[in-house]
Design a protein around this nucleic acid. Structure first.
Length: 472
RNA sequence: GGCGCUGUAGCCAAGCGGUCUAAGGCGAAGGUCUGCAAAACCUUUAUUCGUCGGUUCGAAUCCGACCGGCGCCUCCA
């Protein structure tokens, strides 16, 4: 049984999908006006991990992530760059796809774009107007929050208190300062679409209501996003969808904690951000994922170089084992012993952790315990049957690789080198082995040191010398 | 002001009423192996969980007060 902390009820609840084994999940995606930063990456990675764990448990997840490709910031950027909004959004959509692929994030089933759903959006707005939840003032359509009695139920805000807080935007046209835009009248030079209220474009919140409904139905299982979306974005989505459809919108709301820099929220507006793209130049995607997995998704995570370098270091243990496993499976030793090993214990430990509101730090601890015991078994037995390594690989494939994404068996040991390069290194190893036999340690150490300088690490074992590339 | 999150070893971070004299990662120290390294393994590294009270047979875990950090209430993952 999986339990999930539901922002709506502020409790951990048993997860019961509407239509098992199907799970419908919607995650708020990027506004494509720039490269996404490492804080955004945390949300995407944590959502990916949750999705993969549900799949691990046998659920069939329909996963939808929207791409907001029309909005003020995109328009601003297009003016700055003297180009079309579609040029801007296409550029950053492509970049987004490249970056999430690098981060080992599984593709969504659908990436709906706002601009491809204008008619669906207009239909929802029309329905809200017809039902009296929205009003048109000179081509601008607003949602009337006073009409929706549950307004504030997600964020725990009360309307009168919100009104009292004077930080709400001043707009003389609106009936109530808290009313929000469903349809924005086009200004000179802005992109627009025809609508019953004239030329304009959708407000931000309405696209998620329209597109989630279109792709997942009126009521679906999970909606996730960053904590900063709770209010007003998700609150408004609930108001729109539930008013339009007369049904509960979402059963489980999941929110990700912020990534901080020096204990301050990382954000574009504060300017204290690193793009995921830049981080990936210095660190492996597995290190990023491990660093994130070691903190619970809902809590804050203070980001630093040290966090990533210590994750990178911790990963070596996993990688060394992955390489060894691949090698052993390649050797295919059908003799030898099969150490008695309690795989079930680790499987249960991993699942117990993940079942408990996706406790990835605990799950990660189980993985590290597991690899230590595997290494111990390997150290205690000279000659091990390949079957053992097949079982080890199977477990890690499903958990550390398949769910957490902190290991990559296909890349382990095969760092994209050419055959000639490998042959040359083997030649040097042979020369060094000869030097060692002659006790010419000055030469053998020199070979090892020089290779290390160019990123090749030699490791002597009893039988032979192997090499690997240093991690970046 | 309202709502919410948070304070656990040198650093990061689980645990949220008994199995905690508190996981896991990084770091540090010692050891096994090795010509030396590296890798791997073993041992050590918080009698204590922001502070002070309270509830309880029993609290890091519940309650209260206090101190500190952060966020949302405006676009933001």
């Amino acid at each position: 049984m999986i339990s999930i902390y539901n922002t709506l009820t502020r409790k951990k609840e048993e997860f019961k999908p509407i239509n098992p084994p199907e799970v419908k999940m919607y995650v708020c995606g990027p506004t494509v006006y720039d490269y996404f930063h490492i804080g955004n990456a945390r949300s995407f990675i944590m959502a990916d991990m949750i999705r993969k764990y549900l799949e691990y448990k046998g659920y069939i997840v329909k996963y939808v992530m929207n791409l907001t490709d029309v909005d003020d910031k995109i328009i601003k950027k297009s003016i700055e760059e003297n180009t079309g909004t579609d040029v801007v959004s296409e550029k950053y959509i492509s970049a987004f796809m490249v970056d999430i692929t690098k981060l080992k994030i599984k593709k969504a089933d659908v990436y709906p774009k706002a601009t491809a759903h204008i008619q669906d959006i207009i239909d929802v707005i029309q329905s809200l107007v017809d039902k009296g939840f929205a009003y048109n003032i000179d081509g601008n359509v607003f949602y009337n929050v006073l009409k929706f009695k549950d307004y504030g139920k997600l964020s725990g805000k009360k309307l009168d208190e919100l009104e009292a807080g004077a930080r709400v935007e001043v707009n003389e046209e609106k009936n109530n300062p808290l009313d929000f835009s469903l349809w924005k009248k086009a200004k000179e030079g802005e992109p627009y679409w025809e609508s019953p209220w004239g030329k304009g474009r959708p407000g931000w919140h309405i696209e998620c209501s329209a597109m989630s409904c279109k792709h997942l139905g009126e009521t679906f299982d999970i909606h996730a996003g960053g904590s900063d979306l709770i209010f007003p974005h998700h609150e408004n989505e609930i108001a729109q969808s539930e008013a339009a459809n007369g049904k509960k919108f979402v059963n489980y709301w999941i929110h990700f904690g912020f990534l901080n820099i020096n204990n301050e929220k990382m954000s574009k507006s504060l300017g204290n951000f690193f793009t995921a793209r830049d981080i990936l130049k210095a660190y492996s995607p597995e290190a990023v994922r491990l660093a994130f997995a070691q903190t619970h998704y809902a809590g804050p995570l203070n980001f630093s170089e040290e966090l990533l370098s210590s994750a990178e270091k911790g990963l070596e243990k996993l990688n060394n084992l992955a390489e060894k496993i691949n090698e052993e499976i390649n050797n295919n030793n059908t003799g030898g012993v099969d150490p008695s090993f309690n795989f079930a214990k680790f499987k249960e430990g991993f699942e117990a952790a993940m079942n408990d509101d996706f406790n990835s730090p605990q799950a990660t601890a189980v993985i590290f315990d597991f690899i230590r015991e595997v290494n111990r078994a390997a150290a205690e037995n000279e000659n091990i049957n390949v079957n053992f390594y097949l079982n080890v690989k199977d477990f890690l494939r499903k958990t550390a690789e398949g769910v957490l994404g902190i290991i990559d068996f296909d890349a382990a040991g095969t760092t994209g080198s050419g055959q000639l390069e490998n042959d040359l290194i083997e030649l040097l190893i042979k020369l060094r082995t000869d030097a060692k036999k002659e006790k010419n340690y000055a030469l053998s150490d020199k070979i090892r040191d020089e290779l290390k300088n160019i990123g090749i690490v030699l490791e002597d074992s009893r039988e032979k010398t192997s090499f690997k590339r240093a991690r970046k």
